[in-house]
Design a protein around this nucleic acid. Structure first.
Lengths: 329, 329
DNA sequence: TATAGGAGTGAAAACGTTTCCACTGAGATC
DNA sequence: GATCTCAGTGGAAACGTTTTCACTCCTATA
């Protein structure tokens, strides 16, 4: 590979001058700049980012650690992060933690060795151990807060979102509700479950059942089947995300229960399947793309101005009413 | 940050010895090894991968360039690549090309500067220009071949997949078929469209319509609406992917056409929505995860043994029959 | 006419590793 | 007893940049 030296030799100037000419840092005469550029093109010079990184201490790379890119909520987050990073000249390395704190920590270590400039983490479990392994590299938490860890954070208002869903159902006359919750130990799932209880109490609505389980369609299907078999009476279910809701939809379909005729269903996230489901899912839309953008903005800001106070951004969700919810009968 | 020098000073040995002790390269006495390890722990030493990369010329990083991580086919690919890369000690940087050859080339340049050891690319358009910008860094193509570029490649047998779908429908008595194709200029989409024509001719089935468009549900919905309004007679549609198929499903539902009663539908890929759709989609399953794994294996192999001849892996798809296809009436 | 200042340039240090080479001492071989 | 080998070790070079510093001209100012 051609290096600065090669370019310098060919252009008949010093290596420092080449660096200045190519990067536009420091003064270089017009004639020399042209000569350098020609020489660079001629030898096919490609700057060596590794060497640059060594001297500047900066790699222009962010790490993004997610539970599982395969869960349809996260691709749009990843996409947003990637887009926002790129316009700022950053590359993004990806890690899937599978909600396993050990794997998460392993990734943090790996990326730290790689010298990433910052990390965006949708953290698993309580992860208080993370702070130790993270060291001095800036972190912004996304989608899930980590209790007692004082770092930048962008989340959506889960309480509000669930409250909107419950209120919507209550307004339709539903008085006996079920919550199909997300996994134990995941902050957003716990917050949603708690918010469900609180909203029901406040509105005088009965909580017929509340279970916790993975954020998958299988989980929703399984729990739905069991629930529908159990003969417990309820007229609506609030799922902790769209996948669980879709799984329930399937179970209801198989059990011959009409949605929303017999039972109303709401989801959370508004991922693609929510729109494509039959019936299309009433759900709480998260500003996912915005969240990803914002996380990158925060991270970039923190790199520019390390002293700034920690910021927590809470994004407003939005209830989108489709056909999976209707009047209680 | 603590460096090798700090560790060496604390352990009272030379810097070279520390490097050997920590990496297990070269002989080190048991006593010294212990002292070094203690010292490293004490000062919180983290190896600097950037410096290492500069001297070894290796970053242990792969690039993965996809059209759009938001398209549900790609997350499982990304996941597979990431998993396989990690067990080999590689990190993965991600790029979304949006099927834009310029963006794709920009990413290739960016990642080359970053010094990735290899790239896995689901290439956009014909991309013959890619070979030039890619330089000496090893590439394996995934999901889509690019004509006249002699590099490693792992794809699935699109011809076979489409042929299976057409044959399935023909076996159910369908004689008037429609193809909702993928975007012009994307190799896999073109191959599928061509395979559709060929299979129909071979089986004596009439091609009522064949359109090309983006791999999205919107595209399937729009084209479906137009088609259903047009009063052209057909009894089954073969979509180029599941998203298009789901879009068509919606259009059919709105138009009051029963699936599969009035019209049968098949998809391609077998992504999550295919299973969750109503009715569940008959589709051609791609061994997506396997493809991602294989791509990493190829790349790793090429790095180990640069001289090896180019390999093209063609994976077998599998028709999975669900409820969106039934006998022609 | 002296002088201050700035544009333009190159040599060299620095970043933190890996690795080559040289050296020491101890045990093995003749 | 002389020589050889090899484990164990440290010094120093090298990787390809950026950046500091010093130097040379040249122009503007007094």
């Amino acid at each position: 590979m051609a290096t600065l030296r090669d370019v310098a030799a060919r252009a008949g100037v010093g290596i420092a001058t080449v660096s200045r000419a190519l990067n536009g840092t420091g003064p270089v005469s017009e004639a020399v700049r042209r000569r350098v550029e020609e020489a660079a093109a001629a030898v096919g010079y490609v700057p060596n980012g590794v060497a640059r990184g060594l001297v500047t201490g900066v790699t222009r790379t962010f790490a993004l650690i997610l539970p599982d890119i395969t869960n349809p909520y996260f691709p749009s987050l990843a996409r947003a992060v990637e887009d926002a990073a790129r316009v700022r000249g950053y590359a993004v390395v990806l890690g899937n933690s599978d909600n396993d704190p050990d794997q998460e920590a392993a990734y943090v270590r790996l990326f730290r060795e790689r010298g990433v400039d910052g990390m965006i983490i949708a953290s698993s479990r309580d992860a208080s151990a993370l702070a130790r392994v993270t060291g001095p590299v800036p972190v912004v938490l996304i989608d899930r807060r980590v209790p007692h860890w004082d770092v930048d954070c962008v989340v959506t208002d889960n309480r509000r979102g669930i409250a909107d869903a419950v209120q919507h159902l209550a307004g339709l006359g539903h008085r006996r509700l079920v919550h199909l919750g997300g996994p134990e130990g995941v902050e957003s799932a716990s917050t949603r479950a708690q918010a469900f209880m609180d909203a029901c109490r406040e509105l005088g609505v009965e909580v017929v059942d509340l279970t916790r389980g993975p954020f998958t369609a299988e989980s929703g299907y399984e729990r739905g089947r069991r629930l529908l078999k159990s003969r417990r009476r309820f007229t609506a279910v609030v799922a902790a995300n769209d996948l669980i809701a879709c799984g329930f939809l399937q179970a209801a379909f198989e059990a011959g229960r009409a949605v929303p005729g017999d039972v109303s269903v709401t989801g959370f996230d508004d991922v693609l399947v929510a729109r494509l489901a039959n019936p299309p899912l009433t759900t709480v839309r998260q500003p996912t793309y915005r969240a990803g953008q914002l996380a990158v903005e925060r991270l970039a800001a923190r790199l520019d101005r390390p002293g700034e106070p920690v910021r927590v951004d809470v994004l407003k969700p939005e209830l989108v009413v489709r056909s999976s919810s209707g009047p209680a009968r």
